[in-house]
Design a protein around this nucleic acid. Structure first.
Length: 342
DNA sequence: AATCCGTGGAC
DNA sequence: TGTCCAAGGAT
């Protein structure tokens, strides 16, 4: 019997593991807090984008207790720019739950009950930080498994079959390293756009390679077209400060500071209605792509002296970077300030 | 089950 | 430029 898939992969990992800030070297078991934090940040997010955020978060909140004690608003602002903002809200909730428990749950099931922790994250933390055997399936694992076994069913329907195969090849020991090895393999060799089979430690085990067309896998369902929406954001300024509002907790950019807007959303264009009466002057257009629609956001400058109604705050323009605006509104603000500098 | 939810980099 | 997609989760 030749070496198993997991044995070959672990041997490869021991020589080729990426060095990442949330990983520890050697036999030492990593801090569950850092593993959990990194896994949440890494949900649908590239390692390159996560690295600076992870550094800032762990410097500012070194323990789960410190994070639990932080005002939610500060965590949301620190998350600004990373996207999928419900992650930040759930991060605070989960940290407070963990602090209340006196520490992280020590089972995959216990972890799975935390807000923002789904099947993937629970398995990853259980395997990497707790040393438990867990079947970790992310997009990398799906792709690698779909190729090794040449799974012909399209995603997302093939998920159950893929998970069953992943379970078959997951070892009883070093399941955390195995998971990270699968992800490293998927990130560096068996990638979505490339299959560098000659570099792959599993090349002789791979049905997709044997088929001659490894990139055919995983098979995916066709995507829907993204609509283009239009909307307007409003820049209301007074004595060196701009009027910011806080968006509703749920929905797009939920809970984040923002410029007032005209109600644009995924399903409809904005109504064009300004928050206050007066003269408005167009200050340019910002294009921004979201996951399921594109937005063309006009920016309008207020020329009058009427006070805005309702909830909001005057934010000093020279400290706007600290407001924690999501990228869309940071772009809009940048556009206003750039047009003024001309 | 299908849809909603950000962003930036690679090509 | 447009397209794809990256350590997914909640509803």
């Amino acid at each position: 019997m030749t070496a198993t898939i997991s044995a070959k992969l672990l041997e490869w990992y021991d020589r080729n593991a990426r060095r990442l800030p949330w990983r520890v070297r050697g036999e030492e078991r990593p801090d569950p807090y850092r593993v959990w934090l990194s896994e949440v940040m890494l949900q649908q997010t590239t390692t390159a984008a996560v690295v600076p955020y992870f550094a800032r978060f762990t410097a500012r909140w070194p323990t789960v207790e410190a994070l639990a004690a932080a005002p939610e608003e500060e965590v949301m602002a620190a998350w600004a720019g990373l996207g999928y903002y419900s992650r930040a809200r759930n991060l605070v909730k989960a940290a407070r739950t963990v602090a209340g428990l006196g520490g992280f749950p020590d089972t995959e099931t216990g972890l799975r009950a935390l807000p923002g922790v789904g099947d993937y994250t629970a398995a990853a933390v259980a395997a990497i930080a707790l040393g438990r055997r867990a079947v970790v399936v992310d997009a990398n694992v799906e792709r690698v498994v779909a190729r090794i076994f040449a799974i012909d069913a399209p995603l997302p329907g093939a998920r159950k079959a893929i998970r069953a195969k992943a379970d078959e090849i997951t070892p009883d020991e070093r399941a955390g390293d195995f998971a990270q090895a699968m992800m490293d393999l998927g990130a560096t060799i068996c990638t979505a756009r490339d299959a560098r089979c000659l570099l792959c430690p599993l090349q002789s085990d791979c049905a997709a390679r044997a088929s001659g067309d490894p990139l055919r896998y995983p098979i995916k369902a066709a995507k829907k077209a993204k609509p283009l929406r239009t909307g307007t954001a409003f820049w209301i300024e007074r004595e060196g400060a701009v009027w910011l509002v806080r968006r509703p907790a749920k929905g797009m950019l939920g809970g984040m500071r923002a410029l007032p807007d005209d109600g644009w959303r995924a399903g409809a264009d904005g109504g064009g209605d300004a928050p206050i009466a007066g003269a408005w002057k167009a200050a340019g257009v910002v294009r921004h792509g979201f996951t399921h629609f594109d937005l063309e956001l006009g920016v309008a400058l207020h020329a009058g002296d009427t006070n805005p109604q309702g909830e909001g705050e005057w934010w000093p323009i020279d400290r706007l970077a600290e407001a924690g605006l999501p990228t869309l509104f940071a772009k809009a603000a940048e556009r206003v300030l750039a047009s003024r500098a001309d």
